[in-house]
Computed example of a mutant assay.
Amino acid sequence: MTEFFPLSVDFVWPLAVAVAWILGELVHRGTNLPRISIYSLTGMFLSYAQTGLLPRPSDSSIMLIANMAFGLILFEFAYRINLRWLRTNWWIAASGVVESVITFVLVYVVVSSLGMQGLPGLLVSALAVSTSPAEVLRVVNEQRSSGQVTERVLHMAALNCFFAVFVFNLIVGLWSFQSSGSIWGAVSNSLLVLGASCAIGVAFGYAVPALLRKLGTLGQDATIAFAIAVILLAALAQTFKVSAIVATLSFGFVVRHRRVTLGQAQRNFGVLGDLLTVLLFVFIGATLAWPRIVTGVHIALALLAARFMSKLFGAMLFARLSGTTWRKGALTGIAMSPMSVLVIGLLVQTRSMGVDLMDQLAPLAAATLLLAVFGPVLTLLALRFAGETSEREE
């Protein structure tokens, strides 16, 4: 397309965001599908591998902005996690851990039986555990959802995230060691990345509220202050090649558990968050190439079936013991379907370390596309059947 309409890189991304937003509003109003599903499809259609309007995301500065957008979502997500609730009702924590292990093992058994053995199969299995907070939180905020299933989904998704990130980084370290033979390279690409990322997030969690107290603005509208802090944190993480995912999650957890009240901070960080969310999901779609999707579709379908069944079983396993019904346990498992944004975020992180895994993990492209479209829809349906959504539009 760019051969006929020569457009600068500085223009095509804003154009893609505008097109995605317009299509998202039109389709949402006509079908009530989640807007983010349309944003991802638009990004994929306009990407370098399809129509060619957008350049490769890794070849432009858009990756930094996407990391900032993801960081805002992760901060808000982490701020909503109450560890005291997990300690009080530890069956929920047990359910999240057991479900993560079951998903990892079952997916590995399935993909290895289809030819993805060894490290590629382990990496796919680790990524399959993840429940992406971006899609889940966006649907929750868009529908103004609240209730038992909503809270369980958020907390179990957090446990999924930490399990997936930790195991994925360990496997990447092993991959690095097998490729280079350097123990230091393996450790620096795994444990040190996790430790440094967590340390930066914790430091922000103490420093930012202290600064706001010093300025006397902590009790006022905190949206701008924390948005700037998250954007700075994401930029630092990309500069020093550590995990923006772990850093922003740690930032949100520390702020929450130091009992810092965000006052009048807006959901999704207001208009800024809404705008960056459109760009983030367009970015996710633009990373997907149709040849990879076709190549890995048969393994992706088996992977998704195994993932869906294990999450459904894991969420139902301790449902009665944790104080809910089998039905709400099942709805929790269904609502945990999305994984696309976290998967792309982790793969982008490894690419910045010099380890490009996208070509080796072709089935993930198909799985990511399918869940970018259907994952938010399943979350929306589960929350509606649980009676926890509000139909009123903003």
Score class of each variant (00 low, 15 high):
1 M>R: 06
325 T>P: 09
143 Q>D: 07
304 L>P: 07
233 L>D: 06
33 L>C: 07
183 I>Y: 11
352 S>Q: 14
121 G>N: 06
194 L>N: 11
254 V>D: 02
59 D>H: 14
5 F>A: 13
84 R>P: 04
99 E>W: 01
150 T>F: 03
384 R>H: 09
270 G>I: 06
9 V>T: 13
160 N>A: 10
130 S>V: 15
212 L>T: 10
367 A>M: 07
359 D>N: 01
276 L>M: 14
47 S>K: 02
209 P>N: 07
297 V>D: 08
118 G>R: 06
8 S>D: 13
154 L>R: 04
40 S>H: 00
373 V>F: 15
381 L>E: 01
234 A>K: 06
298 H>C: 14
344 I>Q: 00
394 E>V: 07
365 A>G: 01
145 S>L: 09
93 A>G: 15
350 T>C: 01
42 T>L: 05
199 A>L: 15
160 N>G: 10
317 L>I: 06
257 H>Q: 10
135 E>K: 01
352 S>M: 10
103 T>C: 15
274 D>Y: 04
143 Q>P: 00
347 L>I: 10
78 A>W: 06
48 Y>I: 01
19 V>Y: 11
239 T>N: 12
109 V>C: 03
351 R>M: 02
391 E>S: 07
117 Q>A: 10
278 V>Y: 02
338 P>F: 01
301 L>V: 14
248 T>I: 09
198 C>Q: 03
80 R>E: 15
274 D>L: 11
313 F>I: 15
262 L>M: 12
301 L>Y: 11
98 V>S: 13
247 A>C: 11
137 L>A: 08
374 F>L: 14
351 R>Q: 09
199 A>V: 14
129 V>D: 00
316 M>I: 11
76 E>L: 14
247 A>M: 11
246 V>R: 02
97 V>W: 05
375 G>D: 02
29 R>C: 03
282 V>I: 07
332 T>M: 08
304 L>H: 09
228 I>H: 07
183 I>V: 15
266 Q>D: 02
388 E>W: 01
141 N>Q: 15
289 A>L: 03
185 G>T: 06
193 V>P: 01
296 G>S: 14
29 R>W: 07
280 L>R: 06
336 M>C: 08
351 R>G: 00
208 V>S: 09
287 T>P: 00
234 A>M: 12
70 F>M: 11
22 I>A: 12
201 G>E: 00
213 R>W: 08
82 N>D: 15
108 Y>R: 05
250 S>C: 14
72 L>H: 05
382 A>L: 00
28 H>A: 06
165 V>A: 12
93 A>Q: 05
289 A>N: 04
71 G>L: 05
300 A>R: 04
276 L>C: 08
281 F>S: 09
357 L>S: 04
141 N>D: 13
23 L>R: 09
89 N>I: 10
372 A>Y: 11
294 V>G: 01
69 A>I: 08
306 A>M: 12
99 E>T: 05
334 I>D: 00
258 R>P: 13
360 Q>M: 06
221 D>M: 04
390 S>G: 10
346 L>K: 05
261 T>C: 05
280 L>I: 08
301 L>C: 13
13 W>C: 06
98 V>L: 14
82 N>H: 14
69 A>P: 09
